[in-house]
Amino acid sequence: MANPIAPSAPGATAAGLQACGIDVAFAGLRALNAVDLRVPPATIVGLIGPNGAGKTTMVNILTGFQAPSDGEVRLDGKSLAGVSAVDFRRRGIARTFQGGRLFRDLGVLDNLEVTGIGLGLSRRVARVEASQVLEAMGLGALAAQQAGALPYTDERRIAIARAIVGRPRYLLLDEPAAGMSEHEAGELSELIARLVRELGCGVLLIEHNVRMVLDTCSHIVVLDSGQVIESGDPRTVSQSERVRHAYMGTTADVHGGVESVEREREVAA
């Protein structure tokens, strides 16, 4: 049986979603400074950094919610300059938000259906798509529940399910594990990996949970004060003195997470 959320016609030679030389300035303050970032198809890329590093600004740029002061976003090598956030979504670039942003007065299935209609699907097709996504994610039992009555962790999962409606090629997750326990974050990590396998989409994972990022991503980009200070595989990033220094003075858990996960990797090896 065909996977109900598998992409219907994936590009054969997709080059990826790219941020090229992105600058963003607010009232003379530079939030992003010449940032380059690429999310290839079927790959999970992590974006980490201390508070105020520019992570959410980067997500806003990559999804058309904000225009850069300089630089551009490219999809498969083609510039998306001047393209609206709605058209970013219709071109297969989906995102979640830190606060979830579900329609709390609507049912879970209705939340997903509204997204499908916004993508240009008929109401009937949007409802079928919404049902298939919920079932594929193991959330079918929540379809009739009111979104505003969901437990926090279910609300976060439904936000991801809503983003998957329309079978996006790129999925940007803005702190999806915020407020979750390590066990819950581990389950979410497994879900993200499964979605990549089944959808073939590229994922940009933005997280404060460094342990989760190191365990989930094959490539990680580190921002600090709007600049890329490190980029590479989890081992490279976890051993970087620049990354350790950037996290100094934030929280011991985040700093310690880089070291402790690396120790676990060495023991496992």
Rank of each mutant, 00 (worst) to 15 (best):
P176N: 04
A159C: 07
I164H: 01
L191D: 01
H183V: 15
A177H: 07
I192S: 00
A163S: 10
G179L: 08
L171T: 08
A159T: 10
H183N: 14
V165R: 10
E187Q: 14
G186Q: 06
H183D: 15
A161N: 00
E182Q: 15
S189M: 02
V165Y: 13
A178M: 12
I158D: 05
L171P: 03
L172R: 13
I160E: 13
P168H: 10
E184F: 02
L191I: 06
R169K: 15
H183W: 15
S181W: 03
P168C: 07
D174M: 15
E182M: 06
S181Y: 00
S181N: 01
I158Y: 04
I160A: 11
R162H: 00
I158C: 09
L191M: 13
L172F: 11
L172S: 13
E184M: 02
L191Y: 01
E182F: 11
E190H: 07
A193V: 06
S181H: 00
L173K: 09
E184H: 00
E182G: 14
G166L: 08
P176Y: 05
A163H: 09
L188C: 09
R169H: 15
E175F: 13
R162Q: 04
L172Y: 04
A161K: 14
H183I: 15
I164D: 03
D174G: 13
D174S: 06
I192Q: 09
A193S: 11
A178I: 12
E175L: 11
R194W: 01
L173A: 02
L173D: 05
A161P: 10
L172T: 03
A177S: 15
E182T: 12
I160K: 09
I164N: 05
V165A: 12
A161H: 02
P176A: 12
A177P: 03
I158H: 04
P168S: 09
A178V: 14
I160Y: 08
M180Q: 11
V165Q: 05
R169M: 11
A185Y: 01
P168I: 05
R194E: 15
P168T: 04
G186D: 10
L191K: 03
D174Y: 13
A193D: 10
P176I: 08
I160N: 12
A177T: 04
M180F: 13
R194S: 13
G179P: 01
L173G: 05
E182V: 12
P168E: 09
Y170P: 03
I164T: 09
S189P: 03
D174W: 08
A159V: 03
E190T: 15
G179C: 06
I164P: 00
L171F: 12
L173N: 00
E184R: 05
G166S: 02
R162D: 04
L172M: 14
I164F: 00
P168F: 09
E187L: 15
I160P: 12
E184D: 13
M180E: 02
A178T: 13
